[in-house]
Amino acid sequence: MSQAVKSPKRDAVFPADRHALYDLHQYSAAIRSGDMLFVSGQVGSRADGSPEPVFADQVRRAFANLKAVLAAAGLSFDDVVDVTSFHTDPEKQFETMLAIRAEEIGEAPYPTWTAVGVTWLAGFDFEIKAIARIPE
């Protein structure tokens, strides 16, 4: 006879100045599970959920949104162990993204990173998601 396994309640994390997309698309900014923080994809959205029109500004805003979520959990980019980024036109965008990324991620050793080319990001051109380890 099998027993149903209850899953623990999700421990959601949101930044203080959360943008409109969380409610509009019904997702949490991050979920804390044990000593890990799973951060949803962050885009270059303004507070009202609209995208920054200039690609470089969109990437900077996406990193700022990611940092705000990490900070809400008491973490920084130094705690990030894995990153996935999504790009609507990697060939044209990658050089700009790499320059901004170099400013944002700090010193080596770097987190793992997977970049994925996609055809659609709901009006955005760049998205970044991360997994962080919560220090003891």
Score class of each variant (00 low, 15 high):
116 V>C: 07
68 A>G: 12
33 S>Y: 01
118 V>K: 10
104 E>Q: 14
19 H>W: 06
96 T>Y: 00
16 A>N: 11
29 A>N: 10
5 V>G: 11
52 E>F: 06
7 S>F: 04
85 S>G: 07
31 I>H: 10
129 K>P: 02
45 S>L: 09
45 S>K: 12
94 F>D: 01
122 A>Y: 05
103 E>W: 06
57 D>S: 14
100 I>K: 15
78 D>I: 04
76 S>C: 12
130 A>S: 09
74 G>N: 10
125 D>T: 03
111 P>G: 07
65 N>R: 15
46 R>Y: 01
61 R>F: 03
56 A>P: 00
37 L>Q: 05
81 V>E: 05
43 V>W: 02
86 F>L: 11
110 Y>V: 01
111 P>L: 08
8 P>T: 12
60 R>P: 00
54 V>F: 01
11 D>N: 15
53 P>Y: 02
71 A>W: 01
98 L>P: 01
107 E>C: 00
78 D>M: 10
31 I>N: 14
26 Q>G: 08
71 A>R: 14
61 R>C: 03
109 P>F: 02
7 S>Y: 02
106 G>K: 15
44 G>H: 07
119 T>C: 14
80 V>D: 05
11 D>H: 13
57 D>F: 02
123 G>C: 09
89 D>T: 04
127 E>P: 00
43 V>S: 12
128 I>D: 02
134 I>M: 07
83 V>E: 07
21 L>G: 14
79 D>M: 10
36 M>W: 06
44 G>K: 10
67 K>S: 06
66 L>D: 04
34 G>I: 04
90 P>G: 09
115 A>M: 09
110 Y>S: 02
90 P>S: 14
83 V>D: 04
135 P>R: 15
58 Q>N: 13
61 R>E: 04
78 D>Y: 05
13 V>K: 13
20 A>L: 13
88 T>F: 02
45 S>R: 11
68 A>D: 13
126 F>V: 02
85 S>H: 05
16 A>H: 09
23 D>N: 15
82 D>F: 00
70 L>I: 12
10 R>S: 08
39 V>R: 14
133 R>E: 02
57 D>V: 04
52 E>N: 14
39 V>K: 15
83 V>I: 11
70 L>P: 00
54 V>K: 15
38 F>S: 08
113 W>M: 03
102 A>D: 05
94 F>I: 00
126 F>I: 01
68 A>L: 13
99 A>Y: 03
82 D>M: 12
86 F>K: 09
40 S>R: 10
90 P>E: 06
26 Q>N: 13
44 G>V: 05
110 Y>P: 00
6 K>F: 01
38 F>L: 08
10 R>Q: 11
100 I>G: 11
111 P>K: 10
114 T>L: 11
136 E>C: 04
83 V>K: 10
95 E>H: 13
86 F>R: 07
115 A>H: 01
62 A>Y: 01
136 E>P: 00
14 F>C: 12
112 T>V: 04
119 T>E: 15
24 L>V: 12
23 D>A: 15
107 E>W: 03
111 P>F: 03
133 R>H: 04
124 F>M: 14
2 S>D: 02
133 R>M: 04
5 V>F: 05
116 V>Y: 03
80 V>W: 01
127 E>F: 02
28 S>C: 11
11 D>V: 11
72 A>Q: 10
44 G>D: 09
39 V>G: 13
122 A>V: 08
